[in-house]
Design a protein around this nucleic acid. Structure first.
Lengths: 197, 197, 197, 197
DNA sequence: TATGAATGAGGGTTCATTCAT
DNA sequence: GATGAATGAACCCTCATTCAT
C-alpha cells in the first residue's frame, strides 16, 4: 500500500531474466556445437564448459538431457512444419512440393550431425525427441504425401513415418559419405516413391 | 602321475591349439548373440560371461572391441562377397543380380541389430570394420553395378561405396521402423538407382 | 507519483520491519511443515518454495540451517520451560509432575518427525540446538527431578541431562515403532527412575 | 583327457581367492572404522581409501551400501543370537537372562557408533539391516521375554520388537551422553519392563 | 531487503583395461 | 593360455551457498 512499484527497491526483474535468457541461449548454441562434434550423448560437462557456465546451470535450464536436445532442435523443427504448410498452398505439383520439403529436412539433418543418430536411438531419455518428430513433422510430411497421392504422383503405399525415418537414416553422415551423397541418395529414394507408371 | 605320454611334460601342441580355437569360437558365438541383444557397444564382461570364459580371455583373443566385431561379421561378409561372384555369372539381367545381392546384404544387416549403428559410427575403434566393408564388399558391389551400367540398366552416377553406406543406414531399425520397412525403403532406393529412361 | 507521505522517499521503517517479520514467520511455518515431512535435513530450497520466498531470503533470515531449526522449535521449547514452572507450583506429588512434564515433552518430540534425529546428530551445524536444549530444558527438567528427589520419589542418581537425552532418543520413531510405542517406553523408563523401595 | 590337473597350467585358484578374501576383510575392517567415525552413510570413497583399494573394488565385493553394512555387523548379530540360546538354557531366572542379554546387545551397539542411527533410519538402502535385525535378533529376544513372562517376572505387554528398538535408540550416543549413560538408561528401562507387583 | 541464477564440491555408479597368479 | 580381482577415469546428478541486480 506504500509502494506500488516493487521494482524501486528490489532490482528490476528484467535484468536477471535477460541474463538467464542469454545463458539459456549460450547453452543452446554450445550444445548444438557439441552435438555436432560428439553426438547428442556428449557429456553434459562438455556443454557446460563450452558455454562457459557451471554444470549446475545446465541442469537448472534443462533438467534432463532430452530437454536440451529437444530445445536445440525444436526451432528448426518448427520451421520445417511451417514450410510444409506454405508449400501445400503454393501452385506447384504435390510431388515437387514433397521433394522441396524433404530437401529442407535433409539440410536440417545433415547440418546437425548427431541428430540422425539421436533420431534412431532407442535411449529412453531421447523418447521426447521421437515424440516431437512424430507429432510435428510426421503430420506435416503426411499432408504433402497425401496431396501427392491425390494427384496420382506418389505411391499410396508410402507412409510419412517410414519415409521420414528412412530419410533420417540416409542423413547419417560419415567419412566417404558426405552431405552431397546423402542428398543424392534421398533424391533416389524419392524417385522410388513415385507411382509406378 | 598320469603321464601316459612318455616324456611329454607339456601337452602336445595340438591339444592346446584346439582348446584355443574352441574358446575363440565360443567367444564369437557369444558375441554375436550379445550384439543382437545389446548392440556392438555391449560391455565386454557380458560377452565373457555368455561365453563362459574370463574377461582376460576375451582380451587375449581380441585385443580391441573392433577386432571382435569384425571377426563376428567377417564370415557373413565373406559369404556376401562370394554371392556377388556367383550372381555375376548367372544368366540374369545385371539389375536383377544387384537387387538380389542387396537383398541378401539387407538380410544380413537387419538381423544384426546394432551393426547398422556400428557401420556409421565414427568411433575409431570400429574403423577396422569400415575398412573391412570397403575392401571386401565395395568391390563386390561395384562389380554388380558395373555390369548393370554396362547393360544400361543402372545409372552410371551410382557408386558402390555410397550405395552401400545408404543401404547400411536404411537398415538401422527402431521402434516403428522394422525390418519390412527397411526392405521396402531399400527397394525404393534401388528403383531410384536405375537409369532414367 | 504516489508519494502520499511527504518527503519520505523510502518507506517508513515500520512497514519494512513488519514485512520482514511476516517473511520470517512464513519461513518458520514453512520450515516446520517441511521438517515434519522430510526431516530437518530437507533441502533449503524446499523451505523457500513452501514459504513462497526466494532462496536468498532464507539465508538472510537464518544464515545457517541450525538457526532455522532452533527458531522453529524455540517457541515450543519455551512452552515446555513455562510448563515446568507451573507444574512445580501445583499441589501434586513431584513424581507426578515429572511424569506429566515428560509426557508433554514426548508429545513435542513425536509430532516433530526428524527432531529426534536432529537432537542426537553430531552435525556441528546443529550444536546450537543441543545448546538450546541444555540451557533451557535441562534446568526446567532438573527442577522437577530435584523436587522428586526431595520427596523421596525419584532416584537421586537420575540427572536431567541424561534423562532428556534418553527420552529424546526414545522418541525417534520409525516403521514398527510409532508414537504409542515411544510413549510406552518412556513411561517404563520413568518407572525405572523412581527410588527403589 | 591329457591333463587331469588343470591347476598345473593355470595358476592355483587358491591364491586369488585368498587375495580376494583378504581384500574383503580389509574392506570390512575399514568400513567398520569409517562407520564409527562418520556413520553408515559415509562416502564409499572414504571406505575404499581407508582400505587402500580402488573404488570399483568396493562395488565388486558389496554392490550396495546395505550389503556392506550388513556384512560389517552380521558376525556380531550372530553372536547375540547364539548368546540368547545359551542364556535360555542356563539355570538362572529369566529376568536375569534378559538383563544379561540386553547388556551384551548394548555393548554391541555402543561400540558401533553409527549403527544405532542406521537402525532407525528409514533409508530404503538400509532396509536389509532392519530385516536382519528383525529376523534374527527379535526372535532371540522374544524367546527370553517369553520365558520371563512365563515366570511372572516380565510384563506381558512388552514386545521384543519394541523393546529392541527402544534399546537401540537409547544406545545412540552423543556428547554428554556416553556409554555409561546409555547402559544406565537401558537398565532403568528394563526395570520398567518388570511386572508391577 | 529480496531475489534466484550461477556455481562447483561432493558422492554415486559403471566399465574398459591391466596384470599377477 | 586362462583367469578374474583390482583399478580409476569418466559420467551422472544434487544441493548448499554466494552474489549481482
Amino acid at each position: 500500500m506504500f509502494r506500488q512499484q516493487g521494482g524501486a527497491v528490489t532490482d528490476p526483474l528484467g535484468a536477471r531474466q535477460a541474463g538467464a535468457r542469454r545463458t539459456r541461449e549460450a547453452l543452446l548454441t554450445a550444445a548444438a556445437a557439441v552435438f555436432v562434434e560428439q553426438g547428442v550423448q556428449a557429456p553434459i560437462r562438455d556443454i557446460a564448459g563450452r558455454a562457459g557456465v557451471g554444470l549446475g546451470t545446465v541442469y537448472r535450464h534443462f533438467p534432463s538431457r532430452a530437454e536440451l536436445v529437444v530445445a536445440v532442435y525444436r526451432h528448426q523443427i518448427d520451421e520445417c512444419v511451417a514450410l510444409a504448410a506454405r508449400l501445400r498452398d503454393e501452385p506447384i505439383p504435390a510431388g515437387e512440393a514433397l521433394t522441396r520439403w524433404i530437401g529442407v529436412f535433409v539440410e536440417f539433418l545433415v547440418t546437425k550431425h548427431g541428430l540422425g543418430v539421436a533420431l534412431q536411438s532407442e535411449d529412453p531419455s531421447l523418447l521426447t525427441l521421437h515424440t516431437l518428430m512424430l507429432e510435428r513433422l510426421v503430420p506435416a510430411c503426411a499432408s504433402l504425401i497425401d496431396a501427392g497421392v491425390a494427384e496420382g504422383d506418389i505411391d499410396p503405399a508410402v507412409t510419412a513415418h517410414t519415409l521420414m525415418r528412412a530419410v533420417g537414416n540416409l542423413c547419417i553422415l560419415g567419412p566417404g559419405y558426405e552431405r552431397a551423397d546423402a542428398q543424392a541418395m534421398v533424391a533416389r529414394l524419392l524417385v522410388g516413391c513415385r507411382r509406378r507408371s
